[in-house]
Amino acid sequence: MATRTRFEVKNGVATREAFGQALVELGRVNPDVVVCDADLSKSTFTAGFAKEFPDRFFQCGIAEANMVAIGSGLASGGKIPFVSSFSCFVMNKGFEQLRVTAAFPNVNLKVVGTHSGISIGEDGPSQMSIEDLSLACSLAGFTVLSPADEFSMRKLIRAAAAHQGPVFIRAGRIKAPIIYSAAEEFEIGKAKVLAQGSDVTLMATGLLVAESLLACDLLEAEGISTRVIDFATIKPLDREVIAAAASETGAIVVSEEHLADGGLGVRIAQVVAETAPCVMEFVGVRNTYAESGTPDGLLDKYGLRAVNIAGAARRAVSRKKK
């Protein structure tokens, strides 16, 4: 009989806001922490740090490429810089700088991309980052984090600051359901098993962790024993937990608010292929760009809900039986 931990999925603050709070707390204990932003500090929540530590905050204006390389220079000068913008801007406009000034020389730069995924809503697809995980994971030596709620974000911002080397942290715009308690501890590279089960495993990151927990309830009601795992670290992946889920449940659904081509799903598929090949299904944005709309409406329309995840899980379970 599988053991199961219950999690209450209720609204917390957005992970971007939790990032801003964690940054201020970090600033108070570590004078080497400095912050750069590109005219979005009120949206990325770095404004709190700017207010309390004006001398350690660098407003770069709308010039993301310059901001990223300035961050790398600050890191070379012994600082722990957090550079922040919307994820689509810092990753896409700053990518070459991330590659050449941070990844390649292995510089101690921390990059925080907020407003990730399609749940930013009304601003529409030019502001939506649905390829940031793919880009970040393609930077050799980068650690890539994608916390699901405010408590995991707070802990992982601290872990990122303590980690020596470049880190990308993905944050969202809308309020994120609370998955964890404030006391929960997080380690870079370790996934969290939120529910035990033996028929299928739901793996997810960011907002889709909560949706996977809701899908788990739907599936359990049908008698499908469901395991749920939160991947707050996208790189390096927790290979042990993936291999165990693959061999013990034989069916995996990976869900992410990201293009299905190139994100967490394909990275997990690589580990599954290398360890214990099994049936897999993927829930993500399918080879398209979204549109303006309410966050809820967009998550429904683009199929990133518990009902979609449960459907994928049923498909996986039936494929497994064939």
């Binding site: 790398s72 220079g73 890191a75 070379s76 000068g77 012994g78 810089p81 050449v100 000034t101």
Partner: peptide, 25 residues
């Protein structure tokens, strides 16, 4: 070496970061 370079256009931004760190220090 102070920096890995070769992709043009990035050194001045890196230098600014290093100069800012010197000011803070």
């Amino acid at each position: 070496l102070e920096a890995s370079t070769g992709s043009l256009g990035q050194g001045l931004s890196l230098g600014i970061g290093m100069a800012l760190a010197a000011q803070l220090n």
